[in-house]
């Protein structure tokens, strides 16, 4: 059970980290939100999420296997994200909305 949770969390944080980094680029942000430019906080949130996923990977399989898993997750999740941005960008709209709302409150 704990393993399933760790793997799910690891995948989710890895993907959302990469998604934040992609949204931090104005061309992707504008395609989703139509106006404005991306809040400055988005990129650091993305890096934080990636760092957290690395910690989860270490917790799951130790430093050696964990780092390797994290590194080798880049090609599948990066490609999946790029295909989502190209073909189904609206899937990322909730994330974009969440990120801009967090920025407004500040």
């Amino acid at each position: 059970m704990l393993e399933v949770l760790l793997v799910t969390g690891l995948l989710a944080l890895h993907l959302s980290g990469l998604a934040c980094l992609a949204l931090a680029q104005n061309k992707h942000w504008q395609r989703l939100q139509n106006q404005g430019s991306c809040p400055t906080r988005v990129a650091p949130i993305g890096w934080g999420s990636l760092a957290l996923s690395l910690l989860l990977a270490w917790a799951y399989q130790g430093a050696a296997f964990g780092s390797l898993i994290w590194l080798l997750l880049l090609p599948p999740s990066g490609l999946a994200l790029s295909f989502t941005l190209a073909w189904q960008p609206h899937w990322l709209r909730p994330l974009a909305r969440l990120l801009s709302r967090a920025d407004e409150k500040r």
Binding site: L18, L21, A22, Q25, H28, L71, L72, L74, P75, G78, L79, L81, S82, F83, L85, A86, W87
Partner: peptide, 29 residues
């Protein structure tokens, strides 16, 4: 800049995008 760029509607460009994406993301491997 092109780290997540994939433009499937432009004919030869999409192949280059795919080449760059799969190459850069798995570069350490």
């Amino acid at each position: 800049k092109d780290f997540f760029s994939f433009r499937p509607d432009k004919a030869p460009r999409r192949l280059l995008d795919l080449h760059n994406l799969s190459g850069v993301l798995a570069l350490p491997f």
